[in-house]
Write a protein that binds this DNA or RNA. Structure first.
Lengths: 199, 199
DNA sequence: CTTGAAAGTTCTCAAAAAGTTCTCTATGAT
DNA sequence: ATCATAGAGAACTTTTTGAGAACTTTCAAG
């Protein structure tokens, strides 16, 4: 089992390699961890190599590598920080890793590919994937998969009106919200995530 | 049988591990239960380990683990189909599963959290995550992480002009494209994916 | 090919942090 | 009264962490 500091070192190394394509210097690891001694950084690297989490080329400068198995089977990507216009990338202090295999996982969830641009102003574009959690009840302003008259399925923002009717709101100023009696609308699920691949 | 206090300790430990990925310190358990003595917390942990509800690495810091009642939880969600306004969900013939652990994985990739709305019309909203692949060369109209003058990091669409200059285009009609000489712009990576959580 | 700076390796010493064990005390329930 | 459950805290051991020195190897410039 890794100690707290060892984990911190591992996260830094993985992030560094992802960013630069090669391993960091011991002094860079030390600086990142806020320690003065190169020897201490080396001890951590050695422990991680012993645990099979790193591969070392003995003696070589920048001789730290990731085991190839680790590249393939691991489902975490380093979370380097925030990017904003006009500022360098700002490191995020606590969270250093995103586990893609659990980020969107949950019971009763499925994925839909989006067609059309009715939610474009909510940042949901055609061909995006939305992760939907099967549920019959939503909260106001949730984005839902709604079935109208048992026939038409749509992706819309929902609002439950005080008179019992339901308004389905497209996020596209070219389209208008529509009001339905609650018998006509059946919520099939609530959007809990969205993703898009640019490749 | 567990005493009330033991159960309370167990609940705290399980929650802590779910949240942090590693076990708590005895002092943290004590604090959570509102007691002063580390020794008392240790007594509870010992009792829970004797009952087989925890695994301990003797002596180790943070040596509390959960017995591998753990999950073989896989990281796939069903891909049900396409959703379009006006039509029922249309099944996608070939692909019926999305493996979230590999969907965005790749070498040299990292994640950034987006701040600001300079790419809002490309469907990248504040607090979205973008998956970036470290690369120094992009193609025209790729969305890139660009470093200007070695100082300012920004997320913009890139265009290489025929005269050798580079235009960085924000996807926000309130902002204007900017042209730079190619020495001033350094591409740090290309956006290959984007995701957003609604929870 | 030489050479020196940079980087990796190996040590020892020390201190702080965390786990372990123990005794003493208090409070209810049976 | 006796026992089980609780809590406090002291004393102790082990693990973890850090500093720094001394040494070796790598690497690039001349």
């Amino acid at each position: 089992m890794l100690s707290a500091r060892q984990e911190q070192a591992l996260r830094f190394i993985r992030g560094y390699i992802a960013e630069h394509g090669h391993g960091p210097l011991l002094d860079e690891i030390a600086t990142a961890l806020g320690i003065q001694s190169r020897g201490v950084a080396h001890r951590y690297v050695q422990a991680l190599a012993d645990a099979g989490l790193l591969l070392l080329e003995r003696g070589r400068h920048r001789g730290i590598h990731l085991p190839s198995a680790d590249n393939g089977s691991d489902s975490t990507l380093p979370l380097l920080g925030r990017i904003a216009a006009g500022l360098p990338i700002e490191a995020i202090p606590d969270q250093d890793e995103i586990d893609l295999s659990t980020f969107f996982m949950g019971p009763q969830r499925f994925v839909l590919k989006v067609q059309g641009d009715s939610m474009i102003e909510a940042g949901i574009l055609p061909d995006d994937m939305v992760i939907v959690e099967s549920r019959e009840q939503a909260r106001n302003d949730d984005i839902v998969v709604a079935l109208i008259d048992g026939q038409e399925a749509t992706l819309k923002r929902i609002r439950y009106n005080t008179d019992g009717s339901i308004t389905l709101i497209p996020e596209n100023s070219a389209l208008s919200p529509m009001v339905f009696s609650n018998q006509r609308v059946q919520v099939q699920g609530v959007v809990v995530g969205q993703m898009r691949s640019y490749q």
